[in-house]
């Protein structure tokens, strides 16, 4: 199975790739919402989790989340927001829109891996 990272920062995608590969999943990278949706069209059956940035050029993370949760083929895929946007109201908005978890940057690689496992039902 694969885990998708959607982030306009190549560095964040590299960090996420490291954590994901240790957990023995393959990685699919997209640099914005539009590219992610195109990839999901082709690969949605293999995607176990989507890690989604909030602030991206073009379609932002919340719009992307809304698209995923509004699509019958995709809505079962857990989504974790990975963002430097803090604030309880943002978290509540994301959770109510269907996000499984909300990880604030900066994070340690161990914490990222732990949250990924939790989203996959392999944690608490």
């Amino acid at each position: 199975m694969k885990i998708m990272t959607v982030d306009d920062s190549a560095i964040t995608r590299k960090i996420i790739r490291s954590a994901v590969e240790v957990l023995d999943y393959d990685v699919v990278e997209a640099m914005d919402g539009r590219e992610a949706l195109e990839l999901l069209e082709r690969e949605y059956e293999e995607i176990a989790l989507i890690l989604l940035d909030w602030n991206m050029p073009g379609m932002d993370g919340m719009e992307m989340l809304s698209n995923i949760k509004g699509d019958d083929r995709l809505k079962h895929i857990p989504v974790m927001m990975v963002t430097s946007e803090t604030g309880g109201e943002n978290i509540i908005r994301a959770i109510q829109a269907g996000a499984a978890h909300y990880l604030v940057k900066p994070f340690t690689i161990e914490e990222l891996a732990k949250r990924i496992l939790e989203c996959l039902g392999r944690g608490y």
């Binding site: 920062s9 190549a10 560095i11 964040t12 590299k14 963002t83 430097s84 803090t86 900066p106």
Partner: peptide
């Protein structure tokens, strides 16, 4: 990569400071 890393670092720092 270096450009992206420095931009991401300042992004994380300002996000953290904003809180």
């Amino acid at each position: 990569d270096i450009h992206d890393g420095m931009a991401e670092l300042v992004n994380m720092f300002v996000g953290r400071l904003k809180a």
